[in-house]
Write a protein that binds this DNA or RNA. Sequence first.
DNA 1: TATATTTGCATCGTGAACGATATAAATAAA
DNA 2: TTTATTTATATCGTTCACGATGCAAATATA
Lengths: 150, 150
Amino acid sequence: MDEMFRLDNQLCFRLYTASRLVNQAYWPLLSPHHLTYPQYLVLLVLWEKDTQPVNDIAKRLYLETNTVTPLLKRMEALGLVTRKRGKEDARQTLVTLTEKGKGLQQALTDVPLTVGKSVLCESVTPETVPDLFRMLDDIIGRLASHPDTP
Amino acid sequence: MDEMFRLDNQLCFRLYTASRLVNQAYWPLLSPHHLTYPQYLVLLVLWEKDTQPVNDIAKRLYLETNTVTPLLKRMEALGLVTRKRGKEDARQTLVTLTEKGKGLQQALTDVPLTVGKSVLCESVTPETVPDLFRMLDDIIGRLASHPDTP
DNA sequence: TATATTTGCATCGTGAACGATATAAATAAA
DNA sequence: TTTATTTATATCGTTCACGATGCAAATATA
């Protein structure tokens, strides 16, 4: 039938699958700490800059607040972050790492390298990764900018 | 802090984000037909080869049956497929396209090209797409083969 | 100042993903 | 032929994603 419809010709399917499988690669490293991958991403954001409003965290991860809010509540329940209303702007909810949340960075030091190594292969090497980064960044930039088709 | 932890150095985060954003690009094209993206993938699989057991569909999409089963039930409710037990092997559930499910291919002819175009950009062109495909395929092949780290 | 609009979060409902577990049919082993 | 094991699906519970909607605080407008 139409060649366009062949699964093997779909970029999106590859992205979708690669994303899921890499996500699974994190599981054995994060689950001992009762962490999920999106929660780990939130930690990455907060480790870079502590005490941020929900909106900033969501934007950084290209997510909506309705995804991040319940996620942050679970992280609060785990004792990793605190959430309190902003003083200047009472609409904002400021998210701050607890000592436990900060300390987790030590326990997870080898996560990036471990996952990084498990992804390296024939065509994905330290030399080619920058190319892959550029292509993915371009796709993200293109799709994040506009909701429509231009 | 540790450079390894910077969000901008994470391949996984790029894959995760690109996958989600491309997925969103499908939404306006699929939602008029009450289709989700994973359901569209199932259609792609069945359009290539009709009447397959759940397991074959799941394997083709690198998914588990516990993800695919409820998805297929929803597609059955939409009148896109039928599910019936195999005659030779009564453990299998054979999934077959209905006329409506087959006919949907006509209604969606321009989906692959439309999404394809919306992804093209500076560094992702008809010339570079094969490179991107190869890298993603290698990552998928590497992660799909083993559950561990070798 | 009173009203309208925007902004920042939160709530709700639905559909994936996926680990864990269950169940029946098919196959292998004893 | 019994019994044990494997295989093919399905069920259950939790956590995302995300569209739609609601609400209060902040800001803009009249």
